[in-house]
Each structure stands twice: as structure tokens, then as C-alpha cells.
């Protein structure tokens, strides 16, 4: 009986909360594919891109919000505000940008903006209702940045879905990500090619329901 009541209130809470506009954040280290995923979601459901994605690290240097994104799956609808955040890192050296054909002035400016972007991304953690942690599945998941992000979300009791991106690449290893974070759901996708994107949307519904 208590279980049924609990479930009933949870369902009601879910319905009312969804109407209040849920904030779903995209977090992760640089070059994991956060903006590519944000663009994929926006292209699929709004028909427009959210931001510029590139192979140059720290392309996204400020928090961007796309309001009222509505996704549909199995006859259900979910409305949320999508928040794309700058990649979090512990070091930024302007010289790293020089190899990406930026001149010294541009590289220094990008580094300056990138440091501010990291600070903003961390500040925004408190504003999130749910978070998609976007990781490059070809890279070692045991980085301290990944652990710090997920640890902070756990400390704030924010539901997390780990998105193992770039599964279309040969070196992709979802199992390693699952082994690194066994207490969290992991979904493998390719944001660029759209692989497994339907299952991803289904997981987003489950994520919002967990809050």
C-alpha cells in the first residue's frame, strides 16, 4: 500500500515537475562531444543547431541554453531546457591551441575565455535538475575530471546518465566506462552519426523520472 502511494506521488511529482521545465545539463571534459550531442538533439526536435562543434578543444566557452526542447518517445512527451556547458579541465595552455592553426593572439584569447568557461560550468552545477555526462568512449574514463564531475553530481543528488559517445570509432570501449562508473546507467551513442539515438532518448525519459 505504502509502495503504491509512494509510486503515485512520484508519478504526480514527475508530471508537475516536467511542466515546470526541467533543466538538463551536458557536462564532461573538452572534446567529448557535448555540443555535437546538443546539436543532434536540437536538430532532431527543433530543426536547428545549438552551437558550433569543432575538434579544437574549448570550442564552447560559455554556457548555452536552448529552452523548451520537446522530445517524444513511445507516445510520451518530455519538455526541458537543454544546457550546454564548456568542457571542464584542470589545465589550459594557450600553446595547445597553436597546433590548431590559431595565431598567438587568438590562442591567448581562447585560453582566457576557456578558463572562465570552466568556472561557469562548475557554478552551473547547482542549477541542474538532471545531467548527461558526455564522455569520449575511445579515451580512458578514469580521469580525475570525470570523477570530480560525477562526484559533485552525486553529492548534490542530481540524477546522471553517462553518455559514451563516439561508438562509431574503432577504439570505442563502453565496457571500460561501465566498469569505471558501475553505479550509473551508461548509454553508447554516436552523436555525429546518430547511432543508438532512439535508445538514448528513451534513457533521457528514465533520467528525468529519477529526479
Amino acid at each position: 500500500m505504502i509502495k503504491k502511494l509512494k509510486l503515485f506521488f512520484k508519478e504526480m511529482f514527475f508530471i508537475f515537475n516536467v511542466k515546470k521545465s526541467v533543466k538538463i545539463g551536458l557536462y564532461g571534459p573538452p572534446n567529448g562531444g557535448k555540443t555535437t550531442l546538443a546539436n543532434k538533439i536540437c536538430e532532431d526536435w527543433i530543426g536547428e543547431e545549438m552551437g558550433v562543434a569543432s575538434s579544437v578543444p574549448h570550442e564552447t566557452r560559455e554556457v548555452k541554453i536552448k529552452e523548451s526542447v520537446v522530445i517524444k518517445s513511445r507516445g510520451r512527451e518530455l519538455k526541458f531546457n537543454l544546457v550546454d556547458t564548456p568542457g571542464i579541465s584542470t589545465k589550459i595552455d594557450y600553446e595547445d591551441f597553436l597546433s590548431h592553426k590559431l595565431d598567438v593572439k587568438e590562442a591567448k584569447q581562447r585560453a582566457k575565455e576557456a578558463t572562465k568557461g570552466v568556472i561557469d560550468a562548475i557554478k552551473w552545477l547547482d542549477n541542474m535538475d538532471c545531467v548527461l555526462v558526455v564522455l569520449d568512449s575511445t579515451k580512458n574514463p578514469y580521469s580525475q575530471v570525470n570523477i570530480t564531475i560525477i562526484g559533485n553530481l552525486a553529492a548534490r543528488d542530481i540524477p546522471v546518465l553517462i553518455v559514451a559517445n563516439k561508438i562509431d570509432l574503432k577504439r570505442s570501449d563502453i565496457k571500460k566506462i561501465e566498469a569505471a562508473f558501475p553505479q550509473y546507467p551508461v548509454i553508447g551513442i554516436s552523436a555525429t552519426k546518430g547511432n543508438n539515438i532512439e535508445d538514448f532518448y528513451e534513457e533521457v525519459f528514465k533520467l528525468v523520472k529519477r529526479r
Binding site: 589545465k91 589550459i92 585560453a111 578558463t115 570552466v118 568556472i119 562548475i122 570530480t148
Partner: peptide, 8 residues
């Protein structure tokens, strides 16, 4: 991380 970024 925040303080590190501020001091870069």
C-alpha cells in the same frame, strides 16, 4: 579546479 582556473 575553480581556483586553478582563476590563477592561470
Amino acid at each position: 579546479i575553480t581556483c586553478t582556473m582563476e590563477q592561470i
